[in-house]
Amino acid sequence: MSKRPLLCVRDLHKSYGKRDAKFEALRGIDLDIFEGESVAIIGKSGSGKSTLMHLLALLDKPTSGSIKLSGKDTSKLHNRKLNELRNKEFGFVFQSFFMNSNDTVLNNVILPLKISGVGFRERRRRAMEALKIVELDDKAKNKANDLSGGQKQRVCIARAIINNPKVIFADEPTGNLDSATGERIEKLLFGLNEKKGITLIIVTHDQDLADKCQRQIHIADGQIFKESYREDFDGDGDNDGMRDNNNIHHIDIEEE
């Protein structure tokens, strides 16, 4: 199978503020991420990890440089298309949960499907499926706020997978959790990567978590200073032998 970059990033810059207050958070990032990979973006606090992830996830626009998704320049896509991509192809797990804490677990998980206009029964059925995967189907009716931190993060994972995404972006998914709970979350995420071929992009400052990914992108001061591969991984980006290739998803962006 030939290499096909899912995300192709060239000379990416992102700066915040203007003139005197101008701050360059990213200064020239070149990066290819392949379908079915698990990639860790690792670096110190303030190094620009989240900024990079937000750009990759099409949540924000770069100051300069290009991001191609499945070969298509994303700067040329309309907002409507961007919304649709985030809604249908991406899953998000954020650092501090980001849930509507007064709502039920079920309603939180349903959110992406509600936004895309899936009917009530169908979205309920799929939410229960997703909750079963994270083993929280018995908590569906509970208020999100009443869950423990680990349970909340599992709800977020259920929300991230409900739309059968091609890519999951996870920003410090275990940052707020104790190591045992963190491990459980990691298992879930890597299980999704292996069984369903979902591309995994994890932002972390935790070397142990990064070590579990096939590839690690080290960034400091808005630049990549090192790329490394997991020991058992050959590092040529060819995924043969890692998992069943039939499961790998392709994103096809049809022309507007």
């Binding site: 907002n79 985030r86 998000f92 980001f98 509507n100 895309s116």
Partner: peptide, 16 residues
Amino acid sequence: TREIGLDKALGMSSSK
């Protein structure tokens, strides 16, 4: 604000 951010991150359009 956070809720709106989440909605928009998950693909809700500005017009909605």
